[in-house]
Simulated scan of single mutants.
Amino acid sequence: MPSSAPLIDIGRIYAEPAALDLPRGREIVARWPDATIVPVESHWRIPELHGDEANVRRWVRIKREALVVGVKKTLTVRPNGRSADFIAPSTANGCAMACAYCYVPRRKGYSNPITVFANIDRIAGSIVKHLRTQGPKPEPNQCDPLDWVYDLGENSDCSADALLSDNVHDLVDLFTSVDGAKASFATKYVNRELLKWDPKGRTRVRFSLMPAAMAKLTDIRTTPVPERIAAIDDFVAAGYEVHVNFSPVIVEPGWQDAWRELFRQLDAGIGPAAKAQLACEVILLTHNAALHEVNLGWHPTAEEVLWRPDLQEPKRSENGAINVRYRTHEKRGYVQELLALIAEELPYCRVRYAF
């Protein structure tokens, strides 16, 4: 489902009045002076966006044309232990891209445009306050050998968020000014404006990769995989730590050969500096019945590979939701197959975790 339309072309902004009272909220709105401003009481309750089944047919268009500006109410830093030691409060929620397997829309009903939070000062302050209570990291772990790692983009893609506001830039700068911590975010969008920043090695960018044919089917509106690989050396040279996510791994006939080819493309596409610091995460597909129903309304072809009752079983996630994942025994075998391929094709790439 390729599209020649711009990733973001905002024509309608749903804004909480409290957000427009803040400098960042006013800056965001000023970027689209011709957009219609629609006041809303809550960024979570917008009837014409959320909960309206008719919006499924406009899934991608809403992502491109609608923006929500709100105030982040919950500023809790949560423990993680996989991608990062901690999950920082989100500066945004939702995404301009439209990956068919994305979990964020499960909470938003039938529409998932980006919500940007205007109270960036309080978000940044909550991170600094939390870090001060931690003290130095007592011992190495799989997140990082030296620093506490804070994930910035649990519910969004920070590279795309940077098209909308200076929130991500502010946090990248923040982590250059504190000791003992670094930022981290995963992305499927190459935003070369980030190369103009000065992260000083204190931000880890994790480029998500999968075989190109599968990405074309399921990673809608994202940067093509070869372009993501081609950007890695540039981001390393700009002062970022760059890792990769092999995610999600989607099982279909011939999937092993497709991943081997991807690993060879990655090996050929990056230089010694990137290889010397490369690490990866391996994440197999998790899906959800509600998202399956939404996808049938706008991209049913993707569901042919994502919704596989013959291979999947229900699984309660850490947040209590009921999802479907590959059956435990088979999944263990899939993981081992992929780890063996990584060891063969990318022997210098440390696997931080796989599940």
Results as ranks from 00 to 15, higher is better:
292 H>L: 12
181 A>E: 11
112 N>Y: 13
227 E>R: 14
275 K>G: 01
61 R>C: 00
223 T>F: 05
64 R>Y: 01
175 F>A: 10
9 D>H: 11
237 A>V: 03
298 W>V: 06
118 A>R: 04
218 T>L: 15
216 K>W: 02
300 P>T: 13
153 G>C: 12
51 G>D: 01
325 R>Q: 15
13 I>M: 06
235 F>R: 07
92 A>I: 05
194 L>H: 08
141 N>V: 11
298 W>N: 05
201 G>D: 02
48 E>F: 02
258 A>Q: 13
223 T>I: 04
160 A>D: 01
232 I>P: 05
210 M>V: 03
9 D>P: 02
159 S>H: 06
324 V>I: 15
185 F>L: 00
319 N>E: 09
339 L>H: 00
79 P>S: 09
318 E>Y: 12
328 T>D: 15
76 T>S: 10
32 W>F: 13
89 P>G: 08
59 W>G: 03
355 F>Q: 12
10 I>K: 00
30 A>S: 15
31 R>Q: 14
298 W>I: 07
184 S>V: 09
340 A>V: 01
96 A>M: 07
34 D>V: 02
109 G>F: 09
67 L>T: 01
305 V>Y: 15
285 L>C: 09
224 P>V: 04
45 R>E: 14
83 S>H: 13
268 A>H: 00
100 A>C: 14
264 R>S: 00
211 P>Y: 04
180 G>V: 05
267 D>S: 06
40 V>E: 11
159 S>I: 00
107 R>C: 00
182 K>P: 00
344 E>V: 05
1 M>C: 09
4 S>F: 13
237 A>L: 01
124 A>V: 07
343 A>K: 13
42 S>E: 07
283 I>Y: 03
70 G>S: 02
88 A>N: 08
43 H>A: 12
141 N>F: 14
65 E>L: 05
87 I>N: 11
94 G>Q: 06
68 V>Y: 05
